[in-house]
């Protein structure tokens, strides 16, 4: 499982430019599904046929946050802006890599007050170029955090667990699920970090009976963390509410029942900020009963996100248990 997760987190795939990560995912799931297609926005949609049950959409987004180059100066330094929720304090001393493999260091101009976090206009990227002409990165190129995965006991540290860890859960699900009553539409969505855009179109196209997103959620278990009753290692979280949606009560209850009947540890999630693909899936067409399984994750949207492997494995078990039931809502 760790190797699967490593491959997924270390692969390049910023929002809007998911070609590479999509190829990796396609190779992982082909042979395990009945149909495989890519829609106009780039969502990878895998269908595993069931035995006449419900149409279930399971979504994890494959895009990651990044930075987009908006200017290259005559000395070859790059100026950039955020692609998705990237914050300057996570960039200092950091490295980014581009699709062509070039790595850049984030530099900071001389600051008037060094005790304040600089704004984007004080930051630049240095790829070691000597001139604009010589620079191997051009305007419009997108960089992502450059970090390898580290496994330390049960804790994993990497970039882009948001939401490659959700992708890993769905890949693992396909490996482990045997016969299933339901038609499973496994969707690796694009552009979640730009506003759930891939989920909007893929859910419209599929028109599922039930939607489940698998994504990360914040925890309240770090020093001085804002209050939140979710901790690393205590099981996947069943979402009740986030900033944009309230999970369908029947789906939420069915997930809880699946966990309790199978002795799978779980937590209940009430998240004050942020949302997931589920918020978009829920509003598709005439409305879709939708829920979320969240992997607790510290330091989201930094180059060093942290999850607990047991939570990831239990999320797979929880999905298997949930999907083994005939009734997917209570």
């Amino acid at each position: 499982m760790i190797e699967l997760i490593r491959t997924l987190t270390e692969t390049y795939g910023p929002a809007g430019n998911e070609t590479r990560i999509r190829q990796v995912l396609r190779d992982m799931v082909k042979g395990k599904v009945d149909e495989l297609k890519v829609d106009a926005l780039g969502n990878l949609i895998a269908l595993r046929k069931g035995k006449g049950g419900r149409k279930v959409m399971l979504a994890a987004h494959m895009d990651e946050i990044g930075i987009v180059v908006n200017y290259v100066d005559e000395k070859g330094f790059l100026r950039f802006s955020a692609l998705g929720g990237v914050f300057p304090h996570t960039l200092l001393g950091n490295r980014v890599e581009f699709e062509n493999g070039v790595v850049g260091v984030i530099g900071v101009e001389k600051l008037e007050s060094p005790d304040k976090v600089p704004t984007f206009d004080k930051l630049y990227i240095d790829v070691g170029a000597e001139s604009r002409e010589d620079c191997p990165v051009k305007v419009g190129d997108i960089g992502v955090f450059s970090r390898p995965l580290i496994a330390q006991g049960q804790r994993l540290i990497a970039k882009a667990f948001d939401d490659r860890i959700g992708c890993a859960v769905l890949v693992k699900l396909l490996e482990e699920i045997g016969d299933c009553e339901h038609d499973l539409y496994i969707v690796f969505t694009v552009q979640e970090e730009l506003g759930l855009r891939g989920a909007v179109t893929s859910a419209y196209g599929i028109a599922p009976d039930v939607g489940i997103a698998v994504d990360v959620t914040r925890t309240g278990d770090t020093p001085e963390a804002p209050k939140m009753a979710v901790a690393l290692g205590k099981g996947p979280a069943v979402k009740v509410k986030d900033a944009r949606m309230i999970s369908h009560p029947g789906v939420r209850q069915a997930l809880i029942r699946a966990a309790e009947q199978n002795g799978i540890p779980y937590q209940l999630e009430v998240l004050e900020g942020g949302t997931t693909d589920a918020a978009a899936i829920q509003l598709t067409r005439e409305g879709i009963p939708t829920g979320v399984i969240s992997i607790p994750c510290r330091y989201i949207h930094t180059p060093s996100e942290m999850v607990d492997l047991r939570d990831v494995e239990n999320a797979v078990r929880l999905l298997l248990a949930y999907l083994s039931s005939k009734e997917l809502t209570e």
Partner: peptide, 16 residues
């Protein structure tokens, strides 16, 4: 439903 969460009930009922 869910107007106070961002007009969510209106979106789907109008579609339907």
């Amino acid at each position: 439903s869910q107007e106070e969460m961002g007009l969510r009930g209106a979106v789907v009922s109008a579609y339907g």
